[in-house]
Design a protein around this nucleic acid. Structure first.
Lengths: 341, 341
DNA sequence: ATTCTAAATTATCGCGCGTAAATCTTTTCG
DNA sequence: CGAAAAGATTTACGCGCGATAATTTAGAAT
């Protein structure tokens, strides 16, 4: 690579012996120029290290190659993991992802969308906060920018929704737990921010009734995104107040379960499915850390890979075909048996 | 807000009764215009909802108000947490953060820096991958873009480094462990990606020798960023092979410790500092999850808040003053006593 | 060799804003 | 009240690229 600094496309075009409009076409779509000219441009690209000015490029383009990825809370390893998968898909499709986190704040979620509008993204993959989201603002945004929702469903919003079949999660786990021991009690947050929690509760109730058991639900007090804290504190309260008529607890999600396991430990309760154990604990999500809890957590695995793959595919399908609606998908969960239940 | 759509600054300037260059000045720095004109502009802003085109803005600006934040691996809650703090600081300073993760890949780290160069950021807060980083590429980048390094030190690179005093971490913990029981063995990765690990090892050795104990180091095999996996697998190996002459293990970081705790659990070893326990385990970092391990992990807390605050302050100080060098800072860690040691 | 067509070239405009110089206006303060 | 200073305005140009129309060229097919 030469040390010559190329200032703009004009100059680069001259150096490569190709006219500027053709070079412009090349950068917009390399396959749109003849193979021989393409080779010459790429040869010059090797020598002179020129890159078009993105600001000048995007100024006159209706849409950029940017794709926004928005998650509710990036310090939650679950969202960090799914964001990673989604970003990977976006890159594979030839777009450039930009990652945003609302950090649990609905106002910040709206700000992110506002800022993104100015960036003219080709599309957005959005996992909304859920109950606290400014639904009107989000719906309005999705009318301006092609958006696929994932993880957290909002009605009548965006091109499509891609997520998990949450009622099935709970049913799967209830069936397993009843098959192998006492029927589970349900441990969830009193006011869950995420609508998936409601579907899991409903799935739990339905599954229990189907098997002829009385559903028992403990509602953990507390708000915010410090789920482990809540699981621990309210786990103490539930366990010491005898809130559970059976020896089995199904937590609404793994983070609650992780806190609940801490509470069990601190109360000297041995957790597991063997005879010596006092209690069985299960979660839902297959959180990256659930393999390392003590004991490792039995849970329902979300299909991160399929969700992100499908969400991205739906978005790019819509962008390229110009469709404004597509079919929503709910992926099944898989039971992951570990030692906690 | 009127429904009139304002297309550009020209039009907005006309609507607000101010000349375009003055409006331009206002957007660049609202305090640079007279209070009365500022009021008129802001009144018009209320009515007409105009926002300057960022692409056109940045095209002719040498520097933007963007600040890049780069971390090695965002699905590591430690980096997610520090990224959150850093982003907060950047926003507070009136800049717009953009978050990137190299996901452990040096090539991707370089790509991120390359892409960022094109975005003309005012500055960058960079936590390098460490040993695997393309140091030459990073050093070159820091010569073009004001960059403050954090977490992971690289010599002669950037404006300054802001991180933790890692040797002190180990010393603090060794002192505590020796004071309250048997001297610790050190459990670390054989080929750590992060240079902090080396300083922690050195700190361990120095502290042990100072107290007249023989340092014992177990090197866990394995590469990559799945530290918990490595801690668990190699923990099994270490424990079953009798690699630890004492009943106390200091892990190089909390993620290794979390995996190590799982190994202990699976081997039926009771972890803790009471008489009934077979082994004491300690970590370093105060990882967000270390409060919820079973037992909760005794560790050294990194001062996330101070590190991010200082890193941001150093960067903005340099940007505004145009300095190219500043003093590096190493924050002390604090002992967090929990039940594991 | 001729013809046809796809591709490249030339020429030119426009995007929305930054920026500079010169001029005009307002505020400040002695 | 007047002069100096600070701020606003006008005018004009430039940034780097997208996009278009008219023209020329190259490559493939006949």
């Amino acid at each position: 690579m030469s040390d010559t600094k190329v200032r703009n496309m004009e100059e680069f075009a001259a150096l490569s012996g190709i006219s500027r409009p053709t070079v412009s076409k090349y950068f917009h779509d390399p396959s749109s120029v003849r193979a021989s000219t393409r080779a010459r441009i790429e040869a010059a690209l090797e020598r002179y290290d020129y890159r078009p000015n993105i600001f000048a490029m995007n100024q006159n383009r209706k849409l950029t190659k940017n794709v926004g990825v928005v998650v509710p809370y990036l310090t939650d390893p679950f969202f960090a993991e799914i964001a990673r998968c989604v970003e990977q898909q976006v890159v594979a499709a030839g777009y450039q992802p930009t990652l945003y986190s609302a950090y649990g704040d609905p106002a910040q979620e709206v700000e992110i969308l506002d800022a993104m509008r100015a960036l003219k993204p080709a599309g957005v993959l959005l996992a909304p906060l859920g109950r606290l989201s400014d639904k009107a603002a989000i719906e309005k945004f999705t009318k301006d920018v092609p958006t696929v929702l994932f993880d957290s469903f909002l009605p009548d919003t965006g091109i499509a929704f891609v997520g998990s079949n949450n009622p099935q999660f709970a049913k799967l786990m209830v069936d397993y737990l009843c098959r192998t021991g006492e029927p589970p009690c349900f441990f969830e947050m009193a006011t869950p921010a995420n609508p998936n929690a409601n579907r899991r509760r409903q799935g739990y109730i339905a599954a229990m009734e189907e098997l002829g058991h009385e559903p028992v639900i403990f509602k953990a007090e507390g708000t915010g995104w410090q789920f482990e804290d809540i699981g621990r504190r309210e786990g103490h309260r539930a366990l010491t107040s005898g809130a559970f008529p059976t020896n089995t607890v199904l937590c609404s999600n793994d983070r609650l379960a992780i806190g609940f396991l801490t509470a069990c430990y601190e109360l000297g309760l041995r957790v597991g499915r063997d005879k010596d154990s006092a209690i069985r604990v299960a979660g839902q999500d297959d959180h990256p850390f659930s393999r390392f809890t003590c004991p490792p957590l039995t849970t329902i695995a979300q299909d991160y890979e399929s969700v992100s793959r499908r969400a991205a595919a739906t978005l790019f399908g819509a962008i390229e075909a110009g469709e404004t609606e597509a079919e929503s998908v709910f992926f099944e969960g898989k039971l992951v048996m570990r030692d906690s239940a």
